[in-house]
């Protein structure tokens, strides 16, 4: 059975079998094939082929110039990352991890709280929502510039005026660690300039979370809340035991968004990463293409492959979760 007849067969599959051959005529078959093949080819060619190629290239010493100069070097690039460039690498990994944790305990919790409060029949709720949501439509690069010029300006930024006590504060230049630990002679930790970037990211991320939770809360049945309050549950108990569990689908989406955002973070760090210590993995990958290490395709790809490995688990988990049961379900 060819694919086209499989399509036809499935398309007409009802309780009583319909005659197959008359449904998908020659033209329909061509149209259907084109509708699937053209977009899929583009997507596979520019997204999946490069993904696989990244993994392959991470095992080579290619300089990006001639294919004939490419040699297989096994795990050499990874070995170098873990031994020669380990200070950059582990700090970047730690920054990604701190960003992830921060996004969960900061914007996610706060955004959820705002959504919960705004769901309480607030007059002018739309106005408040707009205020929190406006930063979300800005690109993180613009956010970086806005915060750099207005909030974090060394001499006369708003943050300097409020917290500086009359002194100039180098918010995005200060690489001092707030806390740190030493492993193998390297010192790793949360630098002051990375925290400044985290705060700017949180400003943008909170509204995103708020909107998603607001949508979720709208779908919570009011009788659930009433039942909880009749049972004498206080607000916190009602939220934790009754409302939060019903938000599970939204929680899953937010978990995925947050993990992916934390691994993808690039723009604002690229813009503000002037004196270093704020690198994340995406920056290291790209530095091997643009910056100091330009032309080192092998090592850049090894960073990319590590990034891929880190997000692979979440991608598989989410996709299987979402399409579980679709095979039988989709029947029309």
């Amino acid at each position: 059975m060819t694919d086209a007849t499989a399509v036809l067969d499935a398309a007409t599959k009802t309780k009583h079998k319909v005659k197959k051959s008359s449904m998908f005529k020659g033209r329909d078959r061509t149209v259907f094939t084109l509708m699937v093949v053209v977009p899929t080819t583009l997507h596979v060619l520019l997204v999946w082929v490069p993904t696989i190629a990244s993994i392959f290239l991470s095992f080579t010493d290619w300089n990006g110039i001639r294919f004939s100069e490419m040699g297989l070097v096994g795990f050499e690039n990874y070995w170098q990352i873990f031994t020669v460039f380990e200070k950059d690498f582990f700090q970047a990994l730690l920054n990604n991890a701190m960003l992830l944790v921060f996004l969960f305990v900061g914007p996610t919790v706060f955004g959820m709280g705002l959504a919960y409060l705004l769901d309480k029949n607030i007059r002018g709720s739309r106005v408040y929502q707009s205020a929190f949501y406006t930063p979300v439509v800005l690109s993180l690069a613009v956010v970086g510039f806005m915060w750099q010029s207005v909030i974090y300006s060394t001499e006369n930024g708003l943050a300097t005026e409020i917290f500086g006590g009359g002194e100039a504060v180098d918010w995005i230049g200060n690489q001092e660690f707030i806390f740190s630990f030493a492993i193998n002679g390297g010192e790793y930790g949360l630098s002051k300039n990375f925290l400044a970037i985290l705060v700017a990211i949180a400003w943008r991320h909170t509204g995103y979370i708020m909107v998603l939770y607001l949508a979720g809360l709208k779908s919570v049945d009011n009788s659930l809340r009433e039942a909880a309050s009749l049972d004498g549950a206080n607000e916190w108990q009602a939220f934790r035991r009754v409302i939060f569990p019903t938000l599970k689908p939204i929680n899953v989406v937010i978990a995925v968004i947050t993990v992916i955002e934390a691994l993808r973070a690039f723009d604002i760090i690229f813009v503000l990463n002037k004196p270093r210590k704020t690198e994340v993995l995406s920056i290291l990958t790209t530095n091997n293409l643009l910056g100091e290490g330009g032309g080192n395709v092998g090592r850049g790809s090894a960073y990319a492959a590590i990034l891929f490995l880190l997000c692979l688990g979440f991608v598989i988990w989410y996709v299987t979760n979402h399409y579980k049961g679709s095979q039988e379900g989709a029947e029309s």
Partner: peptide, 8 residues
Amino acid sequence: PQQIIIQP
């Protein structure tokens, strides 16, 4: 993440 595919 976009950075995975950028080199190739």
